[in-house]
Structure formats: C-alpha cells, structure tokens
Amino acid sequence: MSTVLMLKQRPAFPAAPIDGSCLCPDRFAGRARRDVERLPVLVGRSHVPLADLFHVSGDGTEAIEVEGDLSSFARVGASMTRGSLVVRGAVGPRAATGMRGGVFLIEGAAGDHAAEGLAGGLLRIRGDAGDHLAAPVPGSPRGMNRGTILVEGSAGRMAALRMRRGLVAVAGDLGEGAACGMLAGSLFVFGKLGRGAGGLMKRGTILALGGMDPLPTFSPAGTFRLPFLEIFFEGLVAAGFPVPPRARRAAYLSHVGDASGGGVGEILVPGGTP
C-alpha cells in the first residue's frame, strides 16, 4: 500500500525553490498520516506543514506516489536510502541528491544537478534531465559513486562529472563535457554525445552509440566485441530501458585515453568488423 500525495495547486514560483527533501521514503516510513501531514517543508525562509501543499492519503510507508508538477521543488528524494518514490510529473533541481538506495521514478523531466552525489539505488527519469546530471556534491573530488541512473529522454551538459562508479544510461542525446575527469564507471549514450566527452578521464567507459569525435588525446585501439557490454544491455532491457537493437552484439571501435589525464579510460563508438 503506497502513501499517495496530490499537489493542491502548483505554487507560484517563489524566489527560492521549495525544499522537497521531506518527500522521501525514509522520512515517511512508520509515520501515521497525521504525522506525515505535519512534516515541515521549507518554503523560502519559513517552514510550512506538508498538508498545506499536498493532500495526503494513507499512513506513511516506504512506497510514496506523488501526483503533480514538482518543478518548483528542489531536492525531492534527497538522501533516500530505501523504498520507492514515484513522481507523476516533473521535478526541480537536485532531485535524488545524495541518494543511497531504493528506487526513484520521475515520470516527467528533472531539473539541473539531478542525482548529485548519488551513491546507490536506481534513479529513473522518463523525460529529460538538466545540466550536471550525477555531478559531485560541491567540494567533493568524486562524483557519482555506485547506483544506476536511467534517463529515457536527453540530458544537458557536464553529466557524470568525475564519476567514480555505477552506470548512467541516456536513451537520447547528451550535452557537452560529459564524464570529464571520470574515475571509473560506465556512461552509455544511445543518442548523440556532445563535444569534449571524457576530457581528463582516468578510467571508465563511455559508449557513444550515436558516434562522436573523441578529443585528440584519445588513441584508437582497434575494433572489438566486448562481452561485458551485453551484461549491462541485458540488465537495461530487463528493466524496460530502450536499448537500440543495433547496440547489441555489435563491434565497437575503442579509443583509449585521456592521455592528458594519464588515463586508461575508453570511449566506444560503433565500429566495423573486428
């Protein structure tokens, strides 16, 4: 049985986004409905009870469904570690920041800095994601560290910055500067990949099914069929993520780099016969 929240009305866009970090299974679980309704939400400089913004149905559980456009809410699902959160609409910036577990499904688009500092769990965005997807939290030397992010639309610039571990898969296009300073992990882009991807990367894998021109600091290493890709593709397909058939069992031209980062990362683009 899920806890269902319905946005009463889309708030007039305030000077600062509403802090939606209380929309999180960890905060709801085990609370009576009345306690859920009293959860404080930071709007501007003051706290208001959750019930001022949402109709709440049912007691608090680890499964939350939210109906409405939350694009003016920041930090929805922040620091969640368990359970499931479904938002039937868009969400604002920094959704799933610090997420460490559970499943977070966004039926619409996500704002900038989604999955900032993500360290576990599954974030799935049916629409587009903004800039700085899976970025490091400010001041951190590492970005995403474990977990899976699936974007069924496109995403903006500077995704997966200094990524350490995990998988980011984007069904559409991805903007410039993706996976800069990547330390490890996997970034799969099934659409077009913007310029400058993988700059200063040390290790890790960038798969660009739509092709790209790697930076001159990457060296072609040959064309291969790589069995490990199929493991990820199997997982993605089982999860219902749209993996293009031409990606399967294909040969990929591997570019190794970034030499200027002293790295042994790889950018894979569709190749000919190995």
């Binding site: 599954l122 990820f232 999860a239 042994v264």
Partner: peptide, 25 residues
C-alpha cells in the same frame, strides 16, 4: 578493469529480489 552491475539494476528487471547483490566482473 572491473565492471560492476549494480544490484538496483539487477532488481529493476524483476528477475531478482530487491536485495540483489551487485555483481562485479
């Protein structure tokens, strides 16, 4: 090089339990 398939992705397909451990290759 190691590659880790996260437990969250393994369980997302419904073929495994939500506690699916990650698999490292």
């Amino acid at each position: 090089v190691s590659k880790v398939v996260d437990g969250a992705l393994l369980s997302a397909g419904g073929g495994a339990t939500p506690t699916s451990r990650e698999r490292r290759f």
